[in-house]
């Protein structure tokens, strides 16, 4: 009991407090300067990029992942296909960072096999620089772990749809379309939104993949925070890093709270 609380205090609560308090300190004195620094154009654009990247890949990943989850759910419950896809997605959802960045470089980079192949059939994708841009390549790369994550999070919800609901709809005179629009969609909606929020935070807090791909500038919030830690910076800069970190925690906390609320509702509907 005591070890647990001591440990979490030192390695979880103190760091959190360091961030929260540090965000309002400068040179040992309380200040709002760091928070004000969040309105600097560089920080604002990093925040914007992060939000857009996370939102787009969350929604895109959620839609594609949901369709995939439904397709998988129509396969046999204990079949090899389902186990195969579930296991693969289990690995790919965690497959961030360096290896993922390399994988895309090897496929879509300047000498990647797809780029070469496309060039052969006459499609010129340019020198492969698009891959490093946050609103092109990064989105594609992020989708690569967002879709599998969606499958893992959303598959249980899809499987919670009872065959009786479809059959009841049919006997009451409803078509397949009616079933999806009036029954399945409303039932899955809370889970879907919840999962999308989870995907959003997942993308929003990802650092490794972006760090491995983007070598110049700090177009994203996590990269900007990382920069304040590694580069030799002027005094006071590290507290601006704390303010950005706090901003991140707030965004993620809001999303996760909403997720928890939605998750509770859908589990009531889908509980056995």
């Amino acid at each position: 009991m005591v070890p647990f609380f001591a440990y979490t205090t030192v390695f979880l609560l103190i760091p959190t407090l360091v961030v929260v308090i540090g965000a309002f300190l400068s040179g040992g004195r309380p200040t709002l300067g760091n928070v004000r620094a969040l309105t600097e154009p560089a920080v604002i654009s990093a925040t914007q990029h992060s939000v857009v990247l996370s939102a787009v890949t969350a929604v895109g990943g959620a839609v594609i992942g949901a369709v995939l989850a439904y397709a998988v759910s129509t396969a046999r419950v204990d079949g090899v296909l389902r186990r195969f896809v579930a296991s693969l997605c289990g690995v790919l959802a965690q497959f961030g960072g360096v290896a993922l960045a390399f994988a895309f470089l090897a496929s879509f980079g300047a000498t990647g096999f797809l780029t070469t192949w496309l060039a052969k059939v006459g499609v010129d994708t340019g020198p492969g620089l698009w891959l490093y841009e946050w609103d092109k390549g990064l989105m594609l790369v992020y989708l690569y772990f967002q879709i599998p994550l969606m499958l893992i999070v959303f598959l249980p919800a899809v499987e919670g749809l009872r065959p009786q609901w479809r059959e009841a709809t049919e006997t009451l005179g409803g078509s397949t379309w009616v079933y999806w629009r009036r029954v399945a969609a409303p039932i899955l909606f809370p889970s879907f939104v919840g999962a999308t929020l989870l995907l959003f935070t997942n993308a929003f807090s990802a650092y490794a993949t972006a760090a491995a791909l983007v070598s110049q500038g700090s177009p994203l919030l996590p990269l900007a925070i990382g920069n304040t830690l590694t580069s030799e910076v002027i005094l006071g800069q590290e507290n601006i890093g704390k303010a950005m970190a706090l901003e991140m925690v707030v965004v993620v906390a809001v999303a996760m709270t909403l997720y928890a609320v939605l998750d509770r509702r859908s589990s009531k509907w889908l509980a056995p």
Binding site: L12, P15, F204
Partner: peptide
């Protein structure tokens, strides 16, 4: 609460807070 708290604290943020620790 303590166990799930890290879900809202991204690794990059943890790094910032852990520096003095």
């Amino acid at each position: 609460f303590l166990c799930l708290l890290p879900l809202t604290v991204p690794a990059i943020v943890l790094v910032v807070g852990l520096t003095p620790v």
